[in-house]
Amino acid sequence: MKIAIASGKGGTGKTTLATNLASYLAEKEEVVLTDLDVEEPNSGLFINADLVKKEDKFKMIPEWIEDKCTLCGICQKVCNFHAVIQLGTQILVFPELCHSCYACSELCPTDALPMIPQKMGELSHYHRNKLTFIESRLEIGQEQAVPLISQTLDYVDRHFPNEIIKLYDAPPGTSCPVIEATKDADFVILVTEPTPFGLHDLKLAVETMKELKKETGVVVNRFGIGNDDVLRYCKEENIPILAKIPNSRKIAELYSSGELIYRKLPEVKQQLDGIIEHIL
């Protein structure tokens, strides 16, 4: 079972929900939590587990071999991303612009641009008791999150059987990285807050998930602030409300110190039970 936790807007409590739900579930059964917000991975701040393995993740980029090159200019012509440039008698490659499409490399008549691996980020694998935690982290300056997300998903698929509950903390927004992070999920939990910003961004997220034909449910965080528009919208759209996590300064304080909230607050535990009942 693959459950993705997403939100249109950042900072609505996606990571809070992912880490609390994963830890709570792991009190009884095996759970794998994966942080796919590779630009700003935060779940790890709330999880105490032991490092099992760390591995570098690579993307493939072309490397110019001067001796083989005839300066025909095809590589520059076929690169839609301006990542390969011919400068006089030299070919320059700009790795961060490269999308690893292999066109320059494979269309080069003299094999002067073989693809070589370049580090784009790091995957860490942690484990304690029944909880496994996987996190990937994009190197600063690397601009494309999608290849790293995709490799992280592969890693999880390869190492854990399908029967295990897998939770994915998705990046915020509705663009490519979110699509990549949610496209294989069996269920998507959308986290929002009952404010105009929350509602506006929830609508975007719902539209996105409709496009992907995903089954969704909404968790309203900081319930009690703002107004009822989010509840009304969910009713109109026929999206189940899985939980309402109350607004409280106590929660904000626990969160700020990197603590799990359900352990201290029984009312939160109750809400988590509601989610589990609905999905599993």
């Binding site: 991303f81 301006h82 990542a83 440039i85 011919q86 400068l87 320059l92 700009f94 612009l97 601009e143």
Partner: peptide, 15 residues
């Protein structure tokens, strides 16, 4: 109109 790689492209023109 170029999203990425404006710098290298401009540099190439200058070259």
């Amino acid at each position: 109109g170029v999203a990425h790689g404006a710098g290298p492209q401009t540099a190439q023109k200058l070259f």
